[in-house]
Write a protein that binds this DNA or RNA. Structure first.
Length: 170
DNA sequence: GCGACAG
DNA sequence: ATCTTGTCGC
């Protein structure tokens, strides 16, 4: 079935898996995907249900080479992906409004590579950028649709929490 | 040469 | 990312 931000019924969790493996590379700005993707692919191999859309903790095309971790992972998986980063890596933008939902474009010269979204009042905005096989408009619609009362959309927030040490219930 | 720099 | 301190909301 082909879902739509407006008709998606709920945000219920379908499946959860955790995959860990040693890092092979240090963190180098601009090369994050080479450090994170090997483990990410391992996690996807453990899934019994393949997602139809993936939200990644990092940049999509808002990257010097337009290949942030979300864009890069989307290519490997051949799935639509959206990058939602907690801070800026690349691009310029104006000040964002202070109201929840306010946003401004993120530019790389004349090109729009993403959006800076105030996902929650009084909190630093998030950087949303298309990853693979999706437009910025659709990316924004899904991110807004998945926002709870927190800064990060539920998929990213829950995944991050699941990976943390204090959520290793069985 | 200097500063910036996802997680 | 990780660490630490203080504050806020349910």
């Amino acid at each position: 079935m082909k879902w739509d931000p407006a008709t998606a019924p709920d945000l219920s969790v379908v499946e959860r898996v955790v995959h860990r493996e040693p890092t092979r590379m240090p963190y180098i700005p601009g090369l994050l995907s080479f450090r994170e993707i090997p483990a990410a692919l391992g996690a996807f191999e453990k899934l019994s249900v393949m997602p139809e859309l993936v939200m990644v903790d990092g940049q999509g095309i808002a990257h010097p080479r337009r290949l942030g971790v979300a864009a890069h992972l989307g290519l490997w998986l051949d799935l639509p992906t959206i990058g939602i980063a907690k801070s800026r890596l690349y691009g310029q933008h104006a000040e964002v409004g202070e109201q929840r939902g306010d946003w401004v474009p993120l530019y790389a010269g004349p090109e729009t590579i993403g959006a800076v979204l105030r996902s929650r009042a009084k909190v630093k905005p998030v950087y949303v950028s298309p990853g693979h096989r999706i437009t910025l408009e659709t990316s924004m619609a899904w991110v807004m649709r998945c926002l709870g009362r927190t800064k990060l959309p539920e998929p990213t927030r829950l995944a991050d929490r699941l990976a943390s040490r204090r959520d290793q219930r069985k």
